[in-house]
Design a protein around this nucleic acid. Sequence first.
DNA 1: CGGTCTATATATAAATA
DNA 2: TTATTTATATATAGACC
Lengths: 161, 161
Amino acid sequence: MVRRRVEIKKIEEKSRMYTTFTKRRQGLFKKTKVLCTMCEAEAAVLTFSKAGNAFFFGHPSVESVVNRYAAGPSSPASTNTGIEGNEHEVVAASISEAEKKIVELMGKGRAAWDNGVRNLELFELDELESAIQKIKSKVGAQAAETISNGEDQKAEFCGTD
Amino acid sequence: MVRRRVEIKKIEEKSRMYTTFTKRRQGLFKKTKVLCTMCEAEAAVLTFSKAGNAFFFGHPSVESVVNRYAAGPSSPASTNTGIEGNEHEVVAASISEAEKKIVELMGKGRAAWDNGVRNLELFELDELESAIQKIKSKVGAQAAETISNGEDQKAEFCGTD
DNA sequence: CGGTCTATATATAAATA
DNA sequence: TTATTTATATATAGACC
């Protein structure tokens, strides 16, 4: 009965984990369907349980969406078809200083970029991390419901693009 | 304020439709992330707004999940990675992975780099942060303090692994 | 587009069949 | 694994910035 808040972290008990996987996967599919219905959007959800079982959902179909993904460059909020004019500047100017810091650290001349972050010193990684945290709090602290209680690992995980 | 139940059908007003698309898409990404975190699952969500803008999310990465899907419905879980037995290799692999994420997120094609992190969304920032933390821990050191002027630092931590 | 706020609609954890 | 129940945790519509 959800009498308490469930921590967002790995579930150790297998039985619970599978139950949760099934329920949440179904919920995910359902929400995806609603999104597509209400917004005339196309979407696909591909899932693989820890056990390796695969479950897919797609509208109009998994295949069409995946193909569409494969077709174009996958840059989030960037696949600008320009149909609606300029609409992505996302975070935009709300970040400033921290952003500069990141650019400064990661930038190090785009030339160095090719070597990844290997060349960054530890303290620089700290700075980078802090800068990102700062941006996050500005960009939308609420999205991360764990901010206040930065203790245990309730955090989530982000996926990649 | 959701004073009444919203009908699950196509939204006619464009402005409302886009707002809904954005909110629900973010919610979908968030739930996907939670699912992956709690159930050690892999998943990807591919979305295309009516306008044609694309937004993707995936764990461990959109690409890996899509590839797994493409590999075939019977693709056995290749969940167990890095059973190298050699710690160095494992660590190296981990770093590479995190590094790869950073490249994916920040790189987005060096072209996008010029726009800094402006185009990154909260979820992506979370991931970027996680990747950095991962590298830090691997590199072998603990965070020190934040950037000099730690003013409003409420940061939240995302444990990547 | 993203963030904020708030009243409600939904999702869902745990127990049980 | 799926279905049901039900107390709560979350998501989110609509207004506005």
